[in-house]
Simulated assay, not measured.
Amino acid sequence: MPKDSHGHLVAGRVGPQRLVPRSIPRPEYVGKKSPTPYRGNDVYSAEQIQRIRESSIIAARAIEAVGAHIRPGVTTDELDRVGHEFLVDHEAYPSTLGYRGYPKSLCSSVNEVICHGIPDDTVLEDGDIINIDITAFHDGMHGDTNRTFVVGNATREARDLVERTEEALRRGVKAVAPGRELNVIGRAIESYAKRFGYGVVRDFTGHGVGEAFHSGLIVPHYDAAPEYSTVMQPGMVFTIEPMLTAGDITWDMWADDWTVTTKDKSLTAQFEHTLVVTERGAEVLTLP
Rank of each mutant, 00 (worst) to 15 (best):
A193N: 07
S5R: 15
G31F: 03
R13C: 12
H90M: 07
A193W: 04
G199C: 03
D133H: 09
P220T: 13
D89R: 14
I49T: 06
V74P: 00
L169A: 05
K265H: 15
M1G: 13
L106Y: 03
L79D: 04
Y93S: 00
E272R: 13
F238I: 09
P178M: 04
P2D: 10
G199M: 08
L161R: 01
R280E: 10
R13P: 01
R164I: 06
H69M: 00
V237G: 03
V260M: 13
E54K: 08
K32V: 15
I132D: 00
I52F: 03
L9P: 01
T278R: 00
G7Q: 03
A175H: 05
G73R: 00
T135I: 15
L275D: 07
P94G: 04
T278V: 09
T36P: 02
I63F: 05
E181C: 09
G101K: 09
D89M: 14
A46H: 11
V30N: 04
K194A: 13
S56N: 05
G172M: 00
D77N: 05
E283V: 05
G140D: 06
V20Q: 05
S5Y: 15
Y29N: 07
E163I: 13
R147I: 08
G210P: 05
T76N: 02
T76A: 02
G197M: 15
E166P: 01
T165A: 02
S109K: 00
N146P: 03
P242I: 10
V30W: 09
Y38W: 13
H214T: 15
R170A: 15
A62F: 07
G210W: 06
I249R: 08
G101R: 05
R195Y: 08
D133I: 06
